[in-house]
């Protein structure tokens, strides 16, 4: 059977179920890479417990995938991941993190460092699907070297009880970062914080947030772009508030340290009006169906 992946990392609880990579990609347990390479020790500093080391040295033919699953009650994962994409390569990374059941009370901490070298392009798609009592804390840093490009797409289809997510991007000259963070908070507390540092001239950073708060959820999203070079930054924060017991807070922040930088932001929080609701109910949809229809449209069904 032909493999549809160029490399695959599959972890369930703490057990590595699968780890393979085509020629030109080095995939190791992060603990091993830490012992083997001095430069890895420099990048990561603290001795890691579990996670992957992925070093893409040749152009892969297929996407690379990582799948991390929580399967037993009260499991606590502490991932450290390192992904390096060498110069000029184009890589698609598909990352899935999920809980096998809705009631595991799992904890998932992940720190990641992703280095995209000169002129390389990384498409990073991350899908999260958690249980209602889980606690999830991802903290990812992306280093974009000269002219590197990142398209990052995070979607939380089934949110945990608490999501604390940090995303940081450092963009050198001519690099571009597109962050899309999409989540439907249902009975959960969701806090996201993303920062893009436009370090070099002509670096671009765009953040697009699409966040829904439903069923007593609290959403706080802090988005920030800092222009050190003459770059371009834009924050596009859109929320949708569904019920009366939820709240959304947007804190967009643009910091301009270069007179030639172009920075902007927009933020809005919408709702479903009574009139829209009645209109669609008159087409035979229940209130719940109307909310699903509008929310799915708002979040987009791409990917």
């Amino acid at each position: 059977m032909k493999n549809a992946k160029s490399a695959e990392y599959d972890l369930v609880d703490h057990e590595l179920k699968k780890a393979f990579a085509d020629v030109g990609i080095e995939l190791l347990k992060i603990e091993e890479a830490f012992g083997r390479y001095a430069w890895v020790r420099k990048e990561i500093k603290k001795r890691p417990k579990e996670g992957y080391f992925l070093w893409v040295k040749k152009q892969p033919k297929m996407p690379i995938s990582s799948c991390v699953t929580a399967a037993t009650k009260k499991v606590s994962q502490q991932m450290t991941n390192l992904l390096v994409v060498e110069e000029g390569l184009k890589v698609t990374m598909l990352s899935a993190c999920s809980a096998l059941a809705k009631n595991l009370c799992a904890r998932h901490y992940a720190t990641g460092k992703i280095i995209v070298k000169r002129g390389a392009k990384l498409d990073y798609k991350s899908i999260h699907s958690w249980g209602r009592d889980d606690f999830v804390e991802p903290d990812y840093e992306f280093y974009l070297k000269k002219d590197a490009k990142l398209d990052y797409y995070y979607k939380s289809t089934s949110p945990p009880k608490r999501l604390n997510m940090k995303t940081t991007v450092y963009g050198d000259k001519g690099s571009s970062a597109n962050l899309n963070i999409i989540a439907n908070a249902i009975n959960s507390k969701l806090e996201t914080s993303d920062v893009i540092h436009l370090k070099g001239d002509d670096a671009t950073g765009i953040v697009r947030l699409r966040l829904v708060a439903n069923k007593s959820s609290n959403v706080i999203a802090h988005s920030k772009v800092v222009a050190e070079g003459a770059g371009k930054g834009h924050l596009d924060c859109q929320g949708m508030l569904i019920d009366k017991d939820s709240s959304i807070t947007f804190i967009p922040e643009i910091v301009d340290k270069n007179k030639d930088a172009v920075m902007s932001h927009e933020a809005s929080i919408g709702r479903i009006s009574e009139y829209e609701m009645n209109y669609l109910r008159s087409r035979g949809l229940t209130e719940k169906e109307v909310i699903n229809l509008i929310v799915n449209g708002f979040l987009g069904d791409s990917l």
Binding site: G270, S273, Y275, E276, Y279, L280, R281, S282, R283, G284, L285, T286, L293, I294, G297, F298
Partner: peptide, 21 residues
Amino acid sequence: EGRAKTGIALAFQNPPVVKNV
């Protein structure tokens, strides 16, 4: 929605904009 399922439909005088649908 129950009336719609029973067989009544209304073409609205001023239908609302529903974004994203």
